Structures are given as C-alpha cells and as structure tokens.
Amino acid sequence: MTTTTVGHATSHVRTLTQVTDYAEAERLVDRLSDAGFPVERVRIVGIDVYSVEQVTGRLTNVRAALTGAVAGALLGVAAGLLFALFTTGVGWLALVAGGALVGATWGGALGFVTHWSTAGRRDFSSVRNLKAMRYAVQVESTHADDAVHILGLP
C-alpha cells in the first residue's frame, strides 16, 4: 500500500496490477467504468518514465519561415473570422483574406528570425514524448476490493 499526499488530503492507494502497455491500463480502467465503478478513485501511474525525441527532419531558415507562415496564416484567418462577425455584406471575405495574408507575413518573418537567431544550434525539428516501462493501475484502498472483484484479479 502506498500513501500519497495531494494538497492537504492524504489517501492510501493500492496497486491492483502492473502492465507494460498503456492501452492495457486504459482497458482495465474502462472495464471498471463499464461496471459502474467510481473511476475518479483510480489512477494510472507510469513507472520508469523516460523521454523519447523523434527527429522529424532538417530545419532550415526557409522551412522555419514556411512553418511560421502557415501558423501565422491560420491565426490570421481566425482573427479575420472574428472581425467578420461584425461586418455585413461581402466585406468579411476581405477581412479573412487580409488576416491570412498579414498572419502569414508576420508568422513567416518571426519563424525565419527565430531560427536564424539560433545560429545553427538546433537545425532539426522533432516531436517529444514521455514513455514508461510499465504502468501501475492504482485505486484508493477503500475501493480496492470492489475493483479486484470487478477485474477478476487475484
């Protein structure tokens, strides 16, 4: 049994089982939910957590500018649509197009300058994720026996 303090409240938790796949831990919690178990008393804890960074490609000044331009254009379209709510007639289209153009221009410039200022220290793009070697499905001790029964655990 583990004692955990969150804020001022202290609760005792019991590990029901450990699995090596997060999807399996989700399935166990889903089974508890389907049985009407108070799943707000359950938690999934990653054990032996590590970071994985997948490199997705080379990052050049041009690519940084293009990525910034796309993000800026999307933000500009959103701003244009917001302003268009207060416009009558076909003027809304000019607001959306203008927003996209201004957003793309500023986003591209910002993307270019931001990457250029790193002086080549990070010339690649990547996606970071946290992974765990295994996952513990835990439940507050007062509800542990019910959870064990529902899941058919020893």
Rank of each mutant, 00 (worst) to 15 (best):
G89R: 04
A69Y: 08
A109M: 15
A64I: 10
R63G: 10
A79H: 01
S11M: 10
V62L: 15
L74I: 15
S126T: 14
L81F: 09
G46C: 02
G89P: 01
L32A: 08
N61V: 09
A69N: 10
E24P: 03
G120Q: 07
H115D: 13
D48L: 03
T114H: 10
L82D: 01
V96F: 07
G103T: 07
F83E: 03
G80W: 06
T56Q: 10
V113W: 12
R63Y: 00
I47H: 06
T10Y: 00
R121M: 14
F112P: 05
T87L: 07
G111F: 11
T88N: 14
Q54M: 13
S11T: 13
G76Q: 06
L59G: 05
V62E: 13
D34V: 05
A9D: 10
R14I: 11
A71N: 06
T88H: 11
T10D: 08
A64K: 07
A23I: 10
R14P: 00
V45A: 06
F86S: 14
T20K: 04
D123H: 04
F124C: 04
V29F: 05
R41C: 09
L95E: 00
L75P: 01
A119Q: 11
T17H: 10
F83M: 13
H115Y: 11
I47W: 04
G46V: 02
V96I: 14
Q18H: 00
D30A: 09
A94Y: 08
G91M: 00
R41Y: 02
V113A: 15
Q18K: 10
Y50P: 00
A65W: 02
G72P: 02
L85S: 13
V77Q: 06
R41H: 11
A9Q: 12
G107W: 09
A104T: 02
E40I: 00
Q54N: 15
L95K: 00
G107R: 05
A109D: 00
D123M: 13
W106N: 08
T20F: 07
P38N: 01
A35N: 03
E26N: 12
T67K: 15
W92D: 06
A71K: 03
R43G: 02
G57L: 14
V39R: 04
V127E: 12
R41M: 05
S117I: 07
G111L: 03
T105K: 02
L82K: 08
T10K: 12
D48M: 08
G80P: 08
E24N: 04
V52Y: 05
L75Q: 08
L95N: 05
V29T: 14
G108A: 14
V13R: 04
F86E: 13
D34K: 06
A94T: 06
F112N: 00
G76H: 05
T10C: 06
G46Y: 02
N61A: 12
Q54G: 04
V52N: 04
V19R: 01
G46P: 09
L93W: 12
L32G: 12
S126E: 11
G111D: 11
V52W: 09
D48A: 12
A84C: 03
L75K: 01
G57F: 13
R31A: 12
S117R: 15
F83Y: 10
T15Y: 09
E53W: 02
D48G: 09
D21N: 03
E26H: 05
V55I: 15
V127Q: 14
L85A: 09
T114F: 08
